[in-house]
């Protein structure tokens, strides 16, 4: 049975990955998907195909020092404080805190979109590379036929892997046709 490892760090590629997993598993291959599921920018409803063995670096992504500080002091911390104050303070002060919590939520979304993502996505590939390299043991690379790097964020990890294991086929080609039944000879 052939074994394939698929690396996807961008939630926008999940549908393509799932179609690939379905084709590969249908053809008898064993697929492991290394993803950033549950990590930054990976919202709900982006579930990976259940037939694939899933390994994720998503939770670890939240624990990186700069990401953790951003989440604690910009997104979550002020919101928690304002909501708590709105519940406890009576009268106009409480109402002001409630309004402040709503304004903060709006501001946090804007800051995430306008400031955090543009800056973070530049270094996200390198950050995830470090985390992913720690999970190499879980990927079962020894028997893997190929590693498919699906998105740009996963390239630094894939490149590092290709250098560490020169014999391993690390490719950007997510090619479902590899699992098509052979065409009849003319």
């Amino acid at each position: 049975m052939s074994r394939v490892v698929v690396v996807v760090f961008n939630a926008g590629q999940v549908r393509k990955v799932n179609a690939y997993v379905e084709a590969a598993v249908g053809a008898g291959a064993e697929v492991t998907v290394l993803s950033a599921s549950g990590g930054q920018g990976w919202g709900p409803g982006r579930d990976l195909h259940p037939a694939a063995r899933a390994v994720t670096v998503g939770p670890a992504e939240h624990r990186q020092p700069l990401v953790w500080l951003y989440l604690a002091f910009v997104e979550k911390g002020p919101g928690v404080l304002l909501r708590r104050a709105a519940g406890r303070l009576p009268g106009p002060a409480g109402r002001a805190c409630g309004k402040g919590a709503a304004l903060h939520a709006k501001a946090a979304r804007t800051i995430r979109r306008r400031l955090f993502w543009p800056a973070y996505k530049v270094v996200r590939g390198q950050a995830l590379r470090r985390l992913a390299l720690r999970r190499l043991g879980d990927l079962g690379l020894d028997g893997a036929e190929r590693v498919v790097v699906v998105d740009e964020a996963a390239v630094p990890f894939g490149w590092a892997l290709a250098r560490r294991r020169p014999g391993l086929d690390v490719t950007r080609r997510l090619d479902r046709t590899l699992y098509d039944p052979p065409a009849p000879a003319p």
């Binding site: 590939g125 740009e152 390239v155 630094p156 490149w159 590092a160 690390v170 950007r172």
Partner: peptide
């Protein structure tokens, strides 16, 4: 056309968006 990551250069391997 390059899809083999072993053939990527240092810039593309480390900063694919910049290389693109």
């Amino acid at each position: 056309w390059e899809t083999d990551l072993a053939r990527y250069g240092r810039l593309r391997g480390n900063a694919p968006a910049t290389a693109r």
